[in-house]
């Protein structure tokens, strides 16, 4: 039992069938997260990290569709699961926190309504019990005087407070897995720090697995156990947080880490990866990063397979920079 990870994603493919063509937003992504483990899913805008999150919950809107792969949640494949089954899992066993706290709460419903309904949707308990649990959860995420605040409407909260409410809603039914889609991007740094601390504490205490989607490497560095770097819908590199951040092997990860301002000498131009992200509509067969990569050669035009150049590290590149890492 214990060797079954909470979530194992295998070769996930989510494509968007648009008029301009098929956009391969997620193209063969695999990873796994165990109990109490935190995984950072990192990539730039449009790299498919949010779509990966929505695919796990079965919430990809048309014209998008999961076309292949497996999402094994406690061993059960969620791809092709019935809508009723997903409805039972969502908000109960798998919760999600969205990016923009200003938009995730319904503006015309009170906080208590939005919390209590989440409890009642999954459990046959009295409204009073549900209310009590909502209040306790609000207190847990650090909302002062939760009893009073529950009767307020979302617009009466600040952005940080709203995100706490959204996190409280995610925690209500003690899920096994939380998918957090850039939950601190819209918040200021002090609030971000508090929320990261709370999230980490929660996972340690309750054994909840957490996928933290972000483009902020500093956030992941302080929070996650392992990291998956995505580029143009594909996994570029994956490994434990210290390994990847200290010794990146994939040229894209090296470039990404090199772009962090802290790594540069003062007064020097900031490093940037040359070129632009390719369009998802016309991805090359081979490595999507080859146009921007200083190591690229003819071998890069072939389809890249995931390899393990260093133990415990998955890399999709035919020129892993093992020497540079050392």
């Amino acid at each position: 039992m214990s060797d079954v990870p909470t979530l194992a994603v295998e070769n996930l493919e989510t494509h968007f069938f648009t008029k301009a063509g098929v956009a391969k937003a997620v193209d063969g992504v695999s990873f796994s997260v165990g109990r109490g483990e935190i995984m950072g899913l990192v990539g730039e805008s449009g790299s498919g990290k949010s779509v990966t999150g929505f695919s796990i919950l079965g919430l990809v809107d048309p014209p998008g569709r999961v076309v292949g792969g497996k999402v094994l949640f406690n061993g059960e494949d969620l791809i092709g699961a019935s809508e009723q089954r997903m409805q039972k899992l969502r908000g109960n066993k798998i919760a999600m926190i969205f990016q923009d706290p200003m938009m995730t709460l319904n503006p015309v419903l009170r906080i208590d309504t939005q919390m209590i309904e989440t409890v009642l949707a999954h459990e046959k308990v009295s409204k009073e019990t549900a209310r009590q649990r909502s209040r306790d959860t609000l207190a847990q995420v650090g909302i002062p005087s939760p009893e009073e605040r529950m009767r307020a409407y979302p617009h009466q909260f600040s952005g940080g407070m709203r995100q706490r409410v959204a996190i409280a809603i995610a925690l209500l039914n003690k899920p096994d897995l939380i998918v957090a889609d850039e939950p601190t991007t819209a918040l200021d740094v002090t609030i971000q720090g508090q929320i990261l601390y709370e999230a980490q504490k929660l996972c340690r205490e309750t054994g909840t697995a957490l996928i933290w989607i972000t483009h902020d490497l500093a956030v992941v560095a302080g929070l996650a156990d392992k990291i998956s770097v995505m580029y143009a819908g594909r996994l570029a590199e994956q490994g434990t947080i210290d390994d990847v951040l200290d010794h990146p092997v994939h040229p894209y990860t090296i470039g990404l880490l090199g772009s962090v301002p802290g790594h540069n000498t003062r007064g020097q131009r900031l490093y940037q990866i040359p070129g632009m992200t390719p369009s998802l509509l016309s991805l090359p067969d081979g490595c999507a990063f080859k146009e921007r990569c200083e190591f690229s050669d003819a071998a890069c035009a072939l389809r890249q397979e995931i390899t393990e150049p260093v133990p415990g590290r998955a890399v999709r590149c035919c020129h892993p920079q093992i020497e540079a890492a050392r």
Binding site: L57, L59, D61, Q87, K88, L89, R90, G91, N92, A95, M96, F98, D100, M103, T104, L105, N106, P107, E117, T118, A121, H122, A166, I169
Partner: peptide, 17 residues
Amino acid sequence: HQDYIKFARAKGLSQNR
């Protein structure tokens, strides 16, 4: 298409609700 409807779905609410 608002986020709060998607969030409501992510909470596992029924279609009717």
